[in-house]
């Protein structure tokens, strides 16, 4: 196994493009190193992207923030600007693993691992985040909700690397929230996750909302009907219930060791409603 740690993205792309065997990108390593140790992957080349300029930086951009793909959960959690603008994204990323894992695990890695139960992803989807991808043919942008195509599968072509994720600017009266269900209180994988982002207009009515769900389908889902159910309402019980119905209708989970179809569907509805209330309360302060 060859290990490379290039200092610019072009070299990283070239290294990946030139490898005929199995090549893997390493950021925090909290997924990859575990897979290596378990013998699930045996890469011929590992490209560490942490030394690439900008990949561990959080930069203000057009009222939002550009998050380098290798930014760790701890780094994001300590960034006052992101915490104020996108508290739901920060709380979602902060739920990944333990305190120790937070020091390494990256936002880009959580996206690229493409687990349907990834905690960061529903919050990023609700936020309307956009990933910038670098590859042999230059750069392209992909909305986060279109990034994963199935468990462990993404739109990344050979030798492509996620370089950064853009969290956009927010209108006044906007906020977000993320909740996940786990049987324990920490150190677990979401049985269901629900992220919601909304904007409350001066009239007290919701002028737009995005609802995303984790662990209820083969990939994280953006449920447009759920967001629409809130738009134009003041998030009264009837609106929340309609939103919950849209969430339940969108769920297509499996029965597995972590939960049943019935349970996941019921809890997705509960979490989405609870997350909406939190986001609403935060929006009142935003």
């Amino acid at each position: 196994m060859r290990y490379e740690a290039p200092e610019n993205i072009e070299t990283a792309v070239k290294l990946l493009a030139g490898e005929t065997g199995n090549a893997r990108v390493l950021a925090g390593g909290t997924d990859l190193l575990v897979q290596l140790r378990l013998g699930h992957v045996e890469p011929d080349l590992v490209v560490d992207i942490k030394r690439i300029a900008g990949l561990q930086a959080i930069t203000a951009e057009d009222g939002g923030f550009r998050i380098g793909a290798a930014v760790s959960g701890a780094q994001l959690g300590e960034h006052d600007g992101v915490r104020a603008l996108w508290p739901g994204v920060v709380e979602a990323v902060g739920l990944i693993g333990s305190t120790q894992v937070q020091g390494r695990a990256s936002i880009g890695g959580n996206l690229c691992n493409a687990s349907p139960a990834a905690d960061a992803v529903p919050a990023l989807v609700a936020a309307g985040a956009v990933a910038t991808i670098a590859g042999p043919d230059g750069r392209r942008e992909v909305a986060v909700e279109n990034f994963a195509t199935g468990p462990g599968r993404t739109v990344l072509a050979a030798a492509e690397i996620v370089e950064s994720i853009l969290l956009p600017a927010r209108a006044p009266g906007s906020s977000d929230a993320y909740l996940r269900f786990i049987p324990r209180s920490e150190m677990d994988i979401a049985v269901v996750g629900a992220g919601i982002s909304l904007t409350m207009a001066g009239s007290g009515k919701c002028s737009g909302a995005r609802v995303a769900l984790g662990a209820v389908a083969e990939r994280v889902l953006l449920v447009e009907e759920a967001g629409e159910a809130l738009t134009g309402t003041n998030l009264d019980d009837r609106a929340l219930s309609r939103m919950g119905d849209a969430v339940a209708a969108a769920c297509r989970p499996i029965d597995d060791k972590r939960g049943t179809k019935v349970f996941r569907t019921k809890v997705a509805r509960v979490l989405a409603i609870r997350a909406a209330k939190i986001a609403l309360e935060r929006a009142g302060r935003a």
Partner: peptide, 28 residues
């Protein structure tokens, strides 16, 4: 509350790790 050996229809153990065999953590 949460600990259990889960077997699939194939008779194989589905959760041979501390991730899905849930012993309580301190915060529980």
């Amino acid at each position: 509350l949460n600990e259990e050996y889960i077997y699939g229809d194939d008779g194989r153990l589905q959760n041979p790790s501390f991730l899905d065999y849930r012993i309580p953590v301190a915060s529980d």
